[in-house]
């Protein structure tokens, strides 16, 4: 029961934030200096056309009414219509949501695969040469611009060695894995140092805990202690770090998607900004925020699954 209560409470917490988020997404078209419709049509439309478009977007209504229409539509999945692409925004976004989420999950998995062994080695050999080397590696990985790594990987593994495709999404699950390998590695290189560092320091903290000495006194093997006792406790702060930084991860993904001409939300955003396609920008703003909030919710729930102490409040 406590678990259900926790989940419901956590979801209710999201309501005021969702309100704020929707307000930001809604207002962005109204903050455009000058006439957004004029800018959207790139100054090449007759006054009659402008008036029609304005009516179509509901921009001739009073603000509160517009907001209610916006939020009412968003709740049922209607995000308006793109004048430039001549299609409903939810369809344009929906098409690209799947690939973007796939990319996100894939790169998170790769990042964990890179980071886990490195962090464990660094923590078990703390302050030795191998630990320092891993830290330097992390510092370098962190300083590399994702678009630059993407470009280099693309040239090396895509064009020179011809091992992986340099763009596209593919049609089946296996093809997705293959097509998305280079972009996912790019994002993983950017994410892994963060994971290594937080997991390493969390492990070092946990390893000084009394219950680890108790586990040693019990005669457990080093491997068992690390896997069963240390990692599980160390995962808690790492999950938090991941969740807090999910916004950065998504931001990095926007650029990487653009580099690899990947049909996802990020490249859509860049293109929409290029065209000043405000309804699409509005929709994307909302969708990105909802993704961040859902990931944070999932992080809190997995936090709860790992450590029941959060239920105690």
């Amino acid at each position: 029961m406590a678990i259900l209560e926790y989940i419901v409470g956590r979801i209710l917490q999201m309501v005021p934030v969702l309100f704020g988020v929707s307000l930001v997404a809604f207002l962005c078209i109204h903050l455009v200096p000058g006439d957004p419709v004029q800018i959207m049509m790139h100054g090449r439309a007759t006054p009659e056309v402008l008036a029609t478009v304005r009516a179509e977007l509901g921009l001739d209504q009073p603000l509160p009414e517009q907001y209610l229409r916006f939020i009412g539509g968003a709740i049922v999945g209607d995000l308006g219509k793109s004048i430039i692409q001549k299609a409903p925004v939810n369809e344009i976004i929906g098409e690209r949501l799947g690939p973007s989420l796939f990319l996100l999950v894939y790169s998170a998995v790769l990042a964990v695969l890179f980071a886990l062994p490195l962090a464990v080695v660094a923590a078990l050999r703390a302050e030795r040469l191998i630990d320092h080397s891993i830290r330097i590696l992390g510092v370098v990985g962190f300083a590399m611009p994702p678009f630059w790594i993407g470009l280099l990987l693309m040239v090396l593994f895509g064009l020179v060695l011809n091992w992986f495709p340099i763009s596209g999404y593919g049609d089946s699950f296996v093809e997705h894995l293959w097509h998305l390998f280079l972009p996912s590695v790019t994002i993983a290189v950017f994410l892994a140092p963060l994971l290594v560092q937080s997991l390493r320091s969390a492990m070092l903290d946990v390893m000084t805990a009394d219950y680890i000495e108790v586990a040693r006194a019990k005669g457990l093997s080093r491997r068992r202690i690390v896997v069963k006792h240390v990692l599980r406790n160390a995962a808690i702060p790492v999950v938090t770090v991941l969740a807090v930084n999910i916004g950065w991860l998504l931001g990095g993904a926007v650029i990487v998607e653009y580099v690899f001409a990947f049909p996802g939300l990020g490249s859509l955003l860049v293109r929409a900004v290029g065209f000043r396609d405000y309804p699409v920008i509005q929709g994307l703003t909302l969708v990105f925020a909802v993704i961040v909030m859902i990931i944070n919710l999932l992080a809190d729930l997995s936090y709860m699954a790992i450590d029941r102490r959060v239920l105690r409040r």
Partner: peptide, 23 residues
């Protein structure tokens, strides 16, 4: 705190790009 809650709900880069789209 409410302001901060809303701000962290967005990917930073996305908000920056949105502001660039506006200005």
């Amino acid at each position: 705190m409410r302001l901060l809650d809303v701000a962290v709900a967005f990917p930073f880069l996305v908000l920056i790009i949105v502001i660039i789209a506006i200005l």
